[in-house]
Design a protein around this nucleic acid. Structure first.
Lengths: 155, 155
DNA sequence: TTTCATGTAATTCGATATGTTACATGATGG
DNA sequence: CCATCATGTAACATATCGAATTACATGAAA
């Protein structure tokens, strides 16, 4: 199964946006993430609808963060992405007639639901501000400067 | 992302085996599961190596469970399957040079590791005997009889 | 020695996350 | 105005991976 990396990707984008002054274009972000601008717009679309970011067209346009980093949690972002499936394992048949399979599904669903609740609750406790702080701590530790060029392809 | 249903599948197979007297062939199980015998053998291979089941070739051959149901947990089976990935979400890049992405990965990995530990611990508490008991309870509740034909395609 | 069953490699199929192309919409600046 | 820049999106291409299938080898029992 191929893993969904949109959450990871969007976090990366948002933290970079937080380091910039003005709006950042999809084009710029795509180059930094080594992907396609359309991919960026696609993963940002949900966030825009959720009010987490804003986008402007035309000259000087691009994306900006819509709220303080301390008021955006991983859970907000996960929700904005449409709550993608968390698990790579699942039931063979979702509504089986077989009672054996029903028992199996019930046991598995129980365990997965518990793990999912834990994970989502944990997402709710992690803010972008915390991630940003961790990033800055890593930067100090590494002695690097705050610019995209250092870590990504030149813009 | 397509979900890995081997755990679900193998549990289904094992509980059906538990209802049978003698060995069950891959052919029979495949028909009951509406899949291919090779798929059955493939998912059973790891369990055989782990000693959870035995297989016999030739006339009267097939698969049998190697230990009391009360001594096999979901965790044993999960391990025997080779501990497949549990999560459908993951990092965009596994060893990023970008410090932002490192911070993102660290946060995500932390949360996922915690959820994984919970899930695996929980798997360790669920035995096949418990699943079998649940199945029998469901059967009593539904008034059905114990045979594959009732719930699956006729053998 | 025929038949039945597992063991396994190799290949195909199908689903889906991601990447790409193409074009429409709207904002800004001359 | 209108040329340019940027987002918005649909449509299509590609890559990956779980599952299914095919083919054939091995070994046990009648």
């Amino acid at each position: 199964m191929k893993r969904d990396s949109r959450l990871s990707g969007v976090l990366h984008v948002l933290l970079h946006m937080a380091e910039m002054n003005g709006p950042v274009t999809s084009e710029t972000m795509a180059r930094a993430m080594q992907t396609n601008p359309v991919v960026i717009r696609r993963i940002m679309a949900g966030l825009r609808e959720a009010g987490l970011v804003r986008s402007e067209k035309g000259h000087g346009g691009g994306w900006t963060i819509g709220r303080p980093l301390s008021e955006i949690t991983l859970r907000d972002i996960y929700d904005a992405l449409g709550r993608p499936d968390l698990f790579a394992i699942g039931n063979r048949t979702e509504s089986p007639g077989c009672l054996v399979e029903q028992a199996v599904n019930a046991a598995l669903d129980d365990s997965l639901a518990e793990a999912e609740a834990l994970l989502i609750a944990r997402f709710g406790t992690v803010t972008l501000a915390a991630l940003s702080a961790d990033f800055h701590a890593r930067m100090v530790a590494s002695g690097r400067s705050v610019d995209l060029e250092t870590n990504h392809a030149p813009l």
